[in-house]
């Protein structure tokens, strides 16, 4: 398929929607009843396996409960504790830092990479390069954690490389140092998410008519000008998708922290999802754990809604 054809297809895609609206306008009543019937089986399924457990979780979050014996009603006590307990509020602050490393950083890097790859037009081995950059997405998070633990180790790859370049003073136990542990964990996320963002952006760029780039270049636009005036505006849809996925990934971070630091040193890398696990399964505070889970869910919902707000209306 040529770029023009692809672009043409992209432009015609809103078509069927428009037709649908027109068609339903003619017979609105009949559609309503039938639609409910079609939706019913799926709704029963969702109600039983999603809505009911969510309701149950909300209910449990109002109790002090060890998981087996009779629970004690505490009202919003758990929620009050969640926002006042420094150990818990701290974990939410950590996750905010992780959003920078999981979402902002990879998106910026992937944008620059995508623009470079686009300019390099027919780069040899571009496919291989993309595959390599995307690879971390396919690896299990626990494996990624183990790999990075060895990279960050006192005699690991990172410190070895630093010593080779005569930067021995900069070496440290990255995951064991209070000031570097959280950024070190964050950079693992950056490494993982770059691939996802890059693939999304390259797909987006491939849908921009080539003439636009050519026209921009004829008008004397450089790399940055082209990025901001042509590429970026056309990438709003993939950007919002990338932002949603990476921000959610940051908020639900558990496995990487669990494997690399276990929340340490001290409490410098605790995150809410880790607290949920720890509270429920190690401390036997199921009510409190559920409360953090609910807060996290609401947070994810709010942030994704916010991201959808900035996305172009017709693309999502």
């Amino acid at each position: 398929m040529t770029d023009q054809a692809r672009a043409a297809q992209a432009h015609t895609s809103p078509g069927p929607d428009g037709d649908g609206v027109a068609a339903t306008r003619r017979r609105p009543r009949r559609r309503d009843h039938r639609a409910y019937l079609y939706v019913a089986p799926a709704f029963v399924f969702v109600a039983a396996f999603v809505l009911y457990p969510v309701g149950q979780a909300i209910w449990i979050s109002f109790f002090r409960w060890d998981g087996i014996s009779l629970a004690t009603w505490v009202g919003i006590g758990n929620y009050v504790a969640a926002v006042t307990d420094p150990a818990l509020t701290q974990s939410f602050a950590h996750v905010a830092v992780l959003v920078f490393f999981y979402a902002v950083l990879p998106i910026v890097i992937a944008l620059v990479l995508a623009a470079l790859l686009q300019r390099a037009a027919r780069l040899r081995g571009a496919g291989i390069l993309q595959t390599l950059i995307f690879l971390p997405q396919v690896i299990a998070a626990v494996v990624i954690g183990v790999i990075w633990v060895s990279i960050y180790a006192p005699d690991g790859l990172l410190n070895t490389v630093l010593r080779i370049f005569g930067l021995g003073v900069a070496t440290r136990t990255w995951l064991g140092d209070f000031s570097t542990a959280l950024p070190a964990v964050g950079l693992i996320g950056t490494w993982v998410e770059i691939g996802l963002c890059l693939v999304l952006f390259l797909t987006g760029i491939s849908q921009i008519p080539r003439e636009l780039f050519e026209a921009a270049r004829v008008d004397g636009a450089g790399f940055w000008r082209e990025l901001f005036s042509v590429t970026l505006p056309a990438l709003r849809a993939p950007l919002s998708v990338a932002l949603t996925l990476t921000v959610v990934a940051a908020l639900k971070t558990f496995d990487v922290v669990f494997v690399t630091t276990g929340g340490g040193p001290g409490t410098s890398t605790t995150v809410p999802a880790f607290q949920v696990y720890n509270l429920a399964f190690n401390q036997g505070r199921v009510g409190m754990a559920t409360t953090i889970g609910i807060i996290l869910t609401v947070l994810v919902l709010l942030i994704t809604m916010l991201i959808r707000r900035i996305a172009p209306k017709d693309d999502l």
């Binding site: 809505l51 009911y52 309701g55 109790f63 060890d66 087996i68 014996s69 009510g287």
Partner: peptide, 21 residues
């Protein structure tokens, strides 16, 4: 709305977690 319904259903059922024990 559905989440609210689900939550209310739980409330109406009024079962304290662990009360089966």
């Amino acid at each position: 709305a559905l989440a609210a319904v689900a939550a209310t259903a739980m409330l109406l059922a009024g079962c304290t977690p662990g009360s089966g024990q």
